[in-house]
Write a protein that binds this DNA or RNA. Structure first.
Length: 282
DNA sequence: AACTGTCCCTGCAAGC
DNA sequence: TGCTTGCAGGGACAGT
């Protein structure tokens, strides 16, 4: 499932293969994928435009266009972005196709593919961010893009009386962490999901901060995680391999790789499957 | 204000 | 074998 590392991998692919290219044709097959602003706005906003950058905040991919507008892509659960030569057979659930004008005699297409249709493609005027993209405007701190220190973590956690896992998943607090990396981060920090964020000592916050940066950075280096039951791949169709580094996620019932004593426990927190080691995490 | 539960959607795997 | 059921989950939204 695309979280910060998977989204960052896709962003890099867009930067390498799509930025600088003019969009010569736009096809929208499924209107649900463009539900926020509608089919006409997306087609009108992208046709003839050139992507001039590919940035990311949390799980949002943001591309500046030479028209002054921005393209936003959110993969949600099952979204994928692929670039293939025009004429290549498109996979099922290809909902948006951007044809990239000919370069070196080759015409390519950027596909937005999304079986579960939670993902979306939006074109908007950045001056109207607060109105059109309130979720993006209220996004929390991105641990790899924004300034991120243990002190910032302390400020963000100060009034949080719920549990640590729900807080790590709250995109208004920190942006980019999803279910897999929340579990992996808490295991590295040796913290139980049930800890209360506002009660954590500065020493503990320093440990958590290190775990957040470490896990996300290593996962980005690995190209993200590709799980058995999902089809996450990068823009060239390549899998990530961070799943081989997972120490708790998807390992319920197996022996903990760190203490080699306890078996990984499984429970449901904030509606999400949660895996942790009861021996290592307190 | 902060937190919890529900819903959206499809593919896949387990169970009968 | 072929069906049904459950599960996966990001984030908006409604309700407490």
């Amino acid at each position: 499932m695309p979280e910060l590392p998977e989204v960052e991998t896709v962003r890099r692919g867009i930067e390498a293969r799509v930025v600088g290219r003019r969009i010569s044709e736009v096809e929208v097959g499924r209107e649900r994928s463009v539900r926020r602003v509608g089919k006409e706005a997306v087609i009108h906003g992208l046709l003839g435009a050139t992507l001039v950058s590919a940035r990311r905040r949390g799980k949002y991919i943001l591309c500046d266009l030479d028209t002054g507008e921005q393209l936003m892509i959110h993969l949600r659960m099952s979204g994928r972005v692929l670039v293939e030569e025009a004429g290549t057979e498109r996979p099922p659930h290809t909902h948006v196709v951007l044809t990239l004008a000919e370069r070196d005699g080759v015409v390519e297409e950027m596909w937005f593919v999304d079986p579960r249709t939670f993902g979306e493609v939006v074109v908007f005027d950045p001056a109207r961010l607060d109105v059109e993209m309130p979720d993006l405007a209220k996004l929390g701190v991105d641990p790899l893009v924004d300034e991120f220190t243990p002190e910032i973590l302390r400020e963000r956690f100060a009034r949080k009386r719920g549990n640590l896992k729900a807080t790590l998943l709250d995109q208004h607090v920190l942006a980019g962490i999803g279910n897999i990396y929340a579990d992996e981060i808490m295991h590295r920090a040796k913290l139980r999901w049930s800890r209360v964020p506002s009660s954590l000592s500065m020493r503990t916050l320093v440990r958590l901060h290190e775990a957040i940066v470490h896990v996300l950075t290593k996962a980005v280096e690995a190209g993200g995680s590709t799980l058995d039951d999902t089809q996450y791949v990068d823009i060239d169709g390549e899998q990530g391999w961070f799943q081989t580094e997972h120490r708790v996620y998807g390992r319920a019932g197996e022996v903990c790789l760190t203490c080699k004593k306890a078996r990984i426990s499984r429970t449901v927190v904030a509606g999400r499957t949660t895996c942790y080691c009861a021996h290592c995490q307190h």
